[in-house]
Amino acid sequence: MSKEKEKLAVETLSLTKSYNGKAAVNHLSMQVRQGAIYGFIGRNGAGKSTTLKMLCGLAKPTEGEIRLFGKPAEDSYMARRLGCLIESTGLYPNMTARQNMMMKAKCMGLTDEKSVDRALASTGLSDTGSKKARYFSMGMKQRLGIGLALLGNPDLLILDEPINGLDPEGTREVRELLLALSQEGKTLIISSHILGELSKVATHYGIIKEGNLVEQIDRETLEGNCRDYFQIEVDDSKRALPLILEHAPQMQAEVMDDKIIRLYDLKDGAWLNHLLIENRVQVYSSGFHHMDLEEYFLNRMDNLAEGRKGGEEHV
């Protein structure tokens, strides 16, 4: 038990934050392994930023507890092991990128200016010179925010939407940077709406909905759940489905709308096409698909919504 705990970089116990009596984060208990890249996803207003703010000490939990590397978050030494970027980058608009970095370095008590230059270089801001931060483009500000979070070589990085506003090249650079940091053994918590990008790096996921953590899942399990499926588009799914089930009764099928059907655990699609055409069902398209994180996420949200609706009807 205690050994298991040592391996956790972040653990929250029943973490709650209420604004005006309404819970923005509701009894959230999450566990982030050391060395993980934890993708934190949820809709707008789900409570991602609020959770991350509490982890960074910017918001006081209404209830619950936060443990960082097995120690209470109030431990002031812990704060130095943590680098964060929450929502928009916090900076002095009238200072240059380097001066902003120097400010943070002084704030931490770092004396080595090389660490500043290193952070600038790794975020591609070395040649912004005397340009003041207020004239930075959105992507440059974002990079500066990541650079500020990297300063002091923290063991845990908390990044709230770090790739917002970055160009494709910048996105790739940040992705490579994140992977490199992860390889150094750092733990990363990243929230993002760009799920395709997130799925390229994340090793674990936490899905939050209306303040509740609805699922924590690692990459392997997710891949398992994201099954391959065979999708056919026909002129009338009501006619096609009975035909298919007649020939393959144990097949798992899902009717998406009156034209599209998804079939799981199908190895070969040729006989199916043949069958449908023989029975004069028009097939517009057919093919194998792989469910990606985005589809999984949307699916999960829909299922939850339906589940709840069902529950309400029973009451």
């Binding site: 000490g57 910017l58 002031s76 704060a79 964060c84 916090g90 900076l91 002095y92 902003n100 704030c107």
Partner: peptide, 18 residues
């Protein structure tokens, strides 16, 4: 107020919990 204006306060307060 400069600390609040551009949001640099976030950096300060995440480092200095006291």
């Amino acid at each position: 107020c400069g600390d609040y204006q551009g949001g640099f306060m976030k950096n300060i307060m995440s480092l200095h919990r006291q």
